[in-house]
C-alpha cells in the first residue's frame, strides 16, 4: 500500500478513536486502559513475521522474544479486563 493510503487510514482512525473514547463511561476508564493495552499488542503481527523469516538468526530470536512479550500482554490484558468487567453489577432490586 502506498504511504498516502496508509496515512489516510491512520488519520481517520485517530478521529474514530477520539469519538469512541469520549463515549466511554468514566467508571470504565481502568478497563479501558487494560484493554487498550491488550490490543496495542497487535504488534505481535510484526513479531510473528520476524520469527518466521529465514535469513537472520538474530532477527528471528528478537522476533520470538517479542512474541513472548506481546503474548503476555494480549492474554494478561484481556484476562484482567474480563476479570474487572465481571465485577460490575447492577443494583439488585
Amino acid at each position: 500500500m502506498d504511504f498516502i493510503a496508509i496515512f489516510s487510514i491512520f488519520v481517520l482512525a485517530c478521529f474514530v478513536g477520539y469519538f469512541v473514547v469520549w463515549s466511554v463511561t468514566p467508571a470504565l476508564h481502568t478497563p479501558l486502559m487494560s484493554v487498550t493495552n491488550a490490543i496495542s499488542s497487535v504488534i505481535i503481527v510484526g513479531a510473528l513475521i520476524a520469527s518466521a523469516a529465514a535469513g537472520s538468526a538474530s532477527s528471528k530470536w528478537l522476533g520470538l522474544a517479542a512474541v513472548v512479550m506481546a503474548s503476555i500482554n494480549i492474554f494478561g490484558g484481556f484476562a484482567v479486563t474480563a476479570r474487572m468487567l465481571a465485577m460490575y453489577k447492577k443494583k439488585v432490586r
Binding site: 491512520f10 482512525a13 490490543i39 496495542s40
Partner: peptide, 8 residues
C-alpha cells in the same frame, strides 16, 4: 496495527 495504534 495502524487502526489500533490510533485508537490506543
Amino acid at each position: 496495527m495502524i487502526i489500533t495504534g490510533a485508537l490506543v
